[in-house]
Nucleic acid binder design. Sequence first.
DNA 1: TTCCGACAGTGGGGTCGCAAT
DNA 2: ATTGCGACCCCACTATCGGAA
Length: 333
Amino acid sequence: MAAGIPQAVPPILAVEGEPPTGPWAYEYKWDGYRCCLAVSADGKARLTSRNGNDFTPAYPEVAGGAAEALDGRAAVLDGELVALGAGGRPDFGQLQRRTRRNPGARLLAEIPVTFFAFDLLRLASRDLTGAPWTERRAALEALGLDGRGAFAVPPAYTGDDADPARLVEVARGNGLEGIVAKRLDSPYLPGKRSRLWVKKPLFVTREVIVGGWQPGEGHRAGRIGSLLLGAYDEEGALRYIGHVGTGFSDAALSGLADRLEPLARGGSPFDEPVPRDRARKARWTAPEVVGEVTHRTWTRDGRLRHAAWRGLRPDRTPAEIVLGSPPLPPRER
DNA sequence: TTCCGACAGTGGGGTCGCAAT
DNA sequence: ATTGCGACCCCACTATCGGAA
């Protein structure tokens, strides 16, 4: 451990649920890497991931700019490392393109990252984790970090500004992940999942066509591991839109196996190539089963990101499942 | 008694580095 | 040179268990 740098604090984790009303603050939920930034008084800094890995070398503009931004004050900050893409929206795919070990200068220039500081856990020698959120927030804002170098202090809404329903709508309209509610009097509980923070992520519900499946492993060996999903484009071609491997109960898994078994066929039903490592393990089926999934966004390659199975849609026929039809807005869940 | 939080284990998309082919 | 694999990141889930409420 380098001398002088305060120890990283494991992040407090939010539970998922409806944002409470009352003595709560609301912030937007940012799509990036949750990180702890610890800075010593002599300007040394370390960026630590949620699982305790050292991200300092991968994002030198954050650690390197910390000393200047803090003007020689030792501090420990909780925040989200975010890559801002088109329109200033967080772009997780861009963030992933930044290497961990050997960040190249070219990539650094092309993909700037910003550290969104949203909590202050230590300032100089003072431990703030036991202080209420309002006090920590005031101390964070007093640091004047917002807009300095790679740093931002995203807004927090309290009092009259604090209308979670409206903030959810704003988040939806701006392509953000959702909102997080934090109780005004809450201390910071390092490493704990706590009801003091409540996150409300946004999801899209989408109907999909099942074009095959992949066997499971471990305690799901001999059963379905994941489903290969598709949808028709406007030209009537069945496009491959990714996999879903979670959200099934044991009963749903068995039901799906029964439903898909008579539809087995030798080759892919998709009208475009499925990635080779996926196709290798695939068991193809006729594209006759329609189901429903939730997901957050699309990847650059047109795959569902963070998809979860919701259930069969026997009321729908595959021909109805067309991409490019009016997209459903993200739905609250 | 019920409920909640923590944990383990399954699955996804993605990137990078390294070893095997 | 290509491929496969693991280690990381983000994440959504199910199933289970023990302790708190």
